[in-house]
Amino acid sequence: MRTTRRDLLKFGTLAAAAVALPAIGMPETAAAPVGKAAKPLDILILGGTGFTGPFQVAYALARGHRVTLFNRGKRPSPEWPGEVEQLHGDRNTGDLASLKGRKWDVCIDNPTSLPFWVRDAGKVLKGNVGHYLFISTISVYADGARPGIDETAPLAPYKGKDAMAETQQSLMADIEGLYGPLKALSEAEVRKHFGERSTIVRPGYIVGPRDESDRFSYWPLRVEQGGEMLVPGDGLDPIQIIDGRDLGEWMIRLAEAKAYGTFNAVGPDYPLLMDAMLHGCQAVTGKGVRMVHVSPQFLDEHKVDTPIWVPREGNPFSGYGSVSNARAITAGLTFRPLATTVADLLAWFHGLPAERQAKPRAGIPREQEAELLALWKKRGA
């Protein structure tokens, strides 16, 4: 089944309701030492306990910054490698009282998918933060089928009645029609309140340790099992991913550099094709895999979910595998090797409770995969 907007976006939208994640202390392959920043900053992070937030916090502390988190306090905070101030409130209800009368050098807005969240934060923080960084998405673009999308491409229009009246419930009920346009309007609210002192970061698939969606994780985990493996398409479709640590740490460096503007945060810094990604996973796991390429038409016919893969032709989101990241790379975005991401992801996943490992949240169950491969072979393909 070819990727739909729902497949691309549902995990990001549901992040606010996700289960608590393990602590950030995890093995990392060849972690480089982190030097201190030239000037310590007071950084406010809205969210901070989800996927990328803990990486931002850990890196900011390592760089010598002072960190304050604002969230609902519904998730247990990880064991931070330093002192972190915690403020509580609820952006759904407009409860931002704990932010009033405070000043920070930088605010990083991680979880927002609704424009009124930015509007309300702007009313409280305008004039009290020097720099506002907002995590958006490449799904803001109106034409997701065009290869080479850059930051100047037209954005998806909102076609509802009142964007400021949209809620998490309405968003999840109509995610395919609302997610991108509401993110685009959230970006507009950022610029309205913070003007030129704002930074918009548009990631695609965020992967690596702490990724509870299992979208990318399915592939290294499946390669690790070895044997005959169903692979969508001809292996030449482009894939773009970014390690959550690369994204989180770069956000801190953007804050340090006062790098304003809009950036597509996708990776890597070279063309990565589906088969090359799988061979990279195989090199890490050392397992023997025989890849069986199956046509997009066959997958459509059998309604097969193949996460993060999008065929390079004939799909409204084909361009999401080849978005331009030139501006972000110029602004200092760097990428860990694929092997590092895969090795650390596998180490993290195998440290999860057994019942969690037994129930992956994306991909093809092995029984279904075997049935599909048998059907494909009967066609004489």
Rank of each mutant, 00 (worst) to 15 (best):
A358D: 06
D90V: 04
G351F: 08
M229W: 10
M251R: 02
E371H: 10
V34M: 10
D237P: 04
P316I: 06
T93P: 02
A32R: 13
P76Y: 06
A163L: 09
W80I: 07
T112P: 02
I329L: 14
W104T: 01
D275E: 15
D109Y: 03
S170L: 05
L44H: 00
Q240H: 08
R290K: 15
S139I: 06
D95C: 06
K161D: 07
G332R: 11
T112W: 00
A283Q: 12
V284R: 01
G380M: 06
P40V: 05
E369R: 03
A354C: 10
R336K: 14
G244E: 00
S324R: 11
N110W: 03
S186M: 06
A142V: 09
A358Y: 03
D95L: 06
Q282F: 10
L96C: 13
A381N: 11
A381F: 08
E355I: 02
N315C: 10
K287T: 11
H302D: 13
G227A: 13
G363K: 02
I241G: 02
M26Q: 15
I138H: 03
L21W: 04
Q297M: 09
G332Y: 08
K126W: 12
N128H: 15
K123H: 14
S113H: 10
D234P: 08
K36I: 06
K192M: 12
A347I: 01
K74D: 14
S139L: 08
R379E: 11
V231L: 12
G48S: 02
K74W: 12
P147N: 14
T68I: 07
L133A: 01
H279N: 12
Y179S: 08
G12H: 07
H293Q: 09
I241W: 03
I108K: 00
F335R: 03
D42R: 08
D214W: 11
Q168S: 09
E224I: 07
A32S: 12
W250G: 02
E224C: 11
E301T: 13
G204W: 00
L185C: 08
A173P: 01
G351E: 15
R356S: 07
R66S: 08
K126D: 11
W309T: 05
I206Q: 00
T3H: 13
V284D: 04
Y270A: 13
P27V: 14
G160E: 02
K74N: 09
E176S: 14
V67L: 07
Q297H: 10
L373E: 06
E196P: 09
M172V: 12
V106N: 00
A331N: 13
Y260A: 12
D237Y: 09
S98Y: 02
R63K: 15
A31S: 14
G248N: 03
Q282H: 13
V207K: 04
L171Y: 07
V342C: 04
M291W: 09
Q225I: 04
E212P: 01
A370N: 05
N110E: 15
G64D: 01
N92G: 10
W348Y: 14
I200Q: 02
D214L: 07
F11G: 00
E196K: 15
D150G: 05
T49E: 07
H131N: 07
M26R: 15
T68M: 05
L9I: 14
L178S: 04
E228C: 06
Y158F: 15
G195M: 09
E189P: 05
P203F: 02
N325F: 01
V304K: 01
A265D: 05
R75A: 11
V304P: 04
N325P: 02
R202D: 05
R336E: 08
L87A: 13
